[in-house]
Design a protein around this nucleic acid. Structure first.
Lengths: 201, 201
DNA sequence: CCTACCGATCGGTAGG
DNA sequence: CCTACCGATCGGTAGG
């Protein structure tokens, strides 16, 4: 759940930087417990400022939440893209799918509270916040559409099963992992390997 | 999302029946939107009584929520058990797993707001409510442990993949289905068939 | 089952 | 960035 600033592309873009980033970090951590548990007062306490001062940096609570959720999708998107690029052009569809699963799990379970918040809290957010995130989410979904299509073209999927079903099965499983994952129970490498092996043949 | 009283084993056990059941129904429907969205006042409004009158029937909000969540697990448990029993002793492990997936999806996506609430809201509930549900949830999990073990014994799983991984993959996928399921998009029959076919060989 | 109310907490604002 | 405060809403209770 550490926030690596180097993997956080928005860091340093604003001259003041500090306070705004601290507010987002606190909100991301709180969003794990849900939207209502993410109070502006608790955010302020964690940052070390008074409740009213939040509004010097953000227009509203939903402005904060929307920024966190959008950034969470962007972080996992970039993590998966980077993992695929690191494999190089020789990689097989199987290797690529397993690498994408691993990168997604690492982002949501270990690296980014933003991604974790995006996944867990999304469906309980106000409709306006959800809509502000739709484009980014759909862009990310496209990666998985492509990976499943590659696997299908290589004949790695079960016969007579739609690619939509495979994608929804896989994304559902990895998104739900936050509900049961414990580091000492099974490693992320192992989960990624088993999930990929279960679906590919 | 209809509540079929005949499939609701607790109905009729209490002589007064009506009000208590109506409160639970309203709470189950509201819990889809989250724990905090489930206010005692909104429950009362939907039932047609005043807010304070809730406490004539239940000790607290968490008493209501805990009852709903427990019943949600019990309903899906009984739905899956009944579906397996209906198959008879000649059924193959493949048929049994697919029937269980279908029964679970039907319960959470069509038949029971209680089951839907159990799945969606669980991880955002107060710890005390979660603990009051642990036993029932673990009992339900055992069914899936058994089904995966049957499939493994029949040689239907991918080699070198742990049964835990397969169970977590499958349960994660079906539990996440509430996030994307639309009746006009893909039928529950089709989802169950594709999910089973993706994992079995 | 209702009326009337409690203490607490929420998001947000005025004015400095 | 703070002090002081707002209107609204929450879970729950007293007393009937």
């Amino acid at each position: 759940m550490k926030q690596d600033p180097a993997s956080n592309p928005a860091a340093g873009q604003r001259p003041e930087g500090g306070a705004r980033r601290q507010i987002l970090d606190a909100a991301a951590a709180l969003l794990r417990q849900g939207y209502d548990a993410t109070t502006t007062r608790e955010i302020a306490t964690r940052v070390g400022i008074k409740a009213g001062s939040i509004y010097h940096h953000f227009a509203s609570k939903d402005d904060i939440v929307g920024t966190v959720v959008n950034e969470g999708v962007r972080v996992v998107h970039e993590a998966v893209t980077a993992a695929l690029a690191a494999l190089g052009p020789e990689a097989t569809p199987r290797q690529r799918l397993e690498a994408a699963i691993k990168a997604h799990l690492l982002s949501s379970l270990e690296h980014s509270a933003y991604t974790s918040a995006s996944i867990r809290a999304f469906s309980f957010l106000p409709a306006t916040v959800q809509e502000g995130c739709r484009v980014e989410r759909r862009r990310y979904e496209e990666i998985w559409r492509g990976l499943v299509a590659e696997a299908a073209a290589a004949g790695l999927l079960a016969p007579a099963v739609s690619q939509d079903s495979v994608r929804l099965l896989l994304l559902g499983a990895v998104n739900w992992a936050g509900e049961w994952y414990r580091p000492e129970r099974m490693s992320i490498d192992e989960i990624a390997r088993d999930f990929a092996a279960s679906i590919l043949r």
